[in-house]
Design a protein around this nucleic acid. Structure first.
Lengths: 145, 145
DNA sequence: CTTCCTGCAAAAGTTTTGCATTAAC
DNA sequence: GTTAATGCAAAACTTTTGCAGGAAG
């Protein structure tokens, strides 16, 4: 998606939940777009815009409610944020258990489908309405290996 | 696994990393065994044993290093702990996005295998050594649905 | 002009650490 | 008897909140 289109879609999502699309929020979205992987708050703050930490947390919470970003918890000290799958497409994460690095990855559609089917079945067997899934690979990245 | 055998295995795992298997740690293991799903610290402390909060955190960290327990982060306020898969077998989690409840679940072996294969391939394509995976279903449980 | 966003500072809440005491080996 | 685990209290650290000032519609 081109950045201009991205802003249009994000703006619409924010208006849907009664929120404005301010300069700060636009900058946050662009930082996450460029990153192409989930970023922790400190990296977001160091990315060049001058933004108060409290505003970062508040804006990311708003963007999450608007389904613009997703919070990714990895067990590290800070949670990470990425653009929501509505905007980037469905994907999974490689997580390095040594350094904590996270990298986006996709798996074959065929497998994605059969997983989806099996999960729906497993969920409904236990009275659970499955909405989505989260699949992470834990291992060691090239730098740490 | 019978509880008696469990204690033998856990004791061995702790000795492997130069740690003792004390009464507190035994009690923690039994609480997690009975729970059959990942418990947050407050529930562990309320489970009847009188254990200082700091000791709970310290002991769970030791048990994690010894590969006796696994820390499960769900994005809730508290992290949760469960017995490691070495002891309970490989499984996944249903996570209720409303109330945060977590329930253990297994998926068909066939699917588990093809997922494993695909993930190894995806990982090695990106210079990543995949060790394990984590698959959660996000949805709403019966009580919240 | 009214409403909401922003920054600063302080609070809240989870997890970690220091230290004296007690238990394990 | 020596080494390590425990409880208590306090600290550290991430995230949230209150409030006054400024931007957006």
């Amino acid at each position: 998606m081109a950045t201009a289109d991205l802003h249009i879609v994000v703006g619409a999502k924010l208006r849907n939940v009664g929120q404005r699309y301010t300069a700060r929020r636009r900058a946050l979205v662009e930082i996450l777009e460029r990153a192409r992987q989930p970023l922790p708050i400190p990296e977001i703050l160091d990315a060049g815009m001058s933004l108060a930490q409290s505003s970062a947390y508040r804006n990311l919470a708003v963007l999450e409610q608007a389904h613009v970003v997703r919070r990714v918890v990895t067990g590290e000290e800070f949670s990470r944020y990425e653009l929501a799958e509505d905007l980037t497409g469905h994907h999974h994460h490689l997580v390095c258990s040594n350094c904590g690095a996270v990298r986006d990855v996709t798996i074959p559609t065929r497998l994605e489908r059969s997983m989806e089917r099996a999960l729906d079945e497993v969920a409904s067997d236990t009275g659970f309405a499955a909405v989505s899934h989260r699949l992470d690979l834990i291992g060691t990245c090239r730098a740490c290996g």
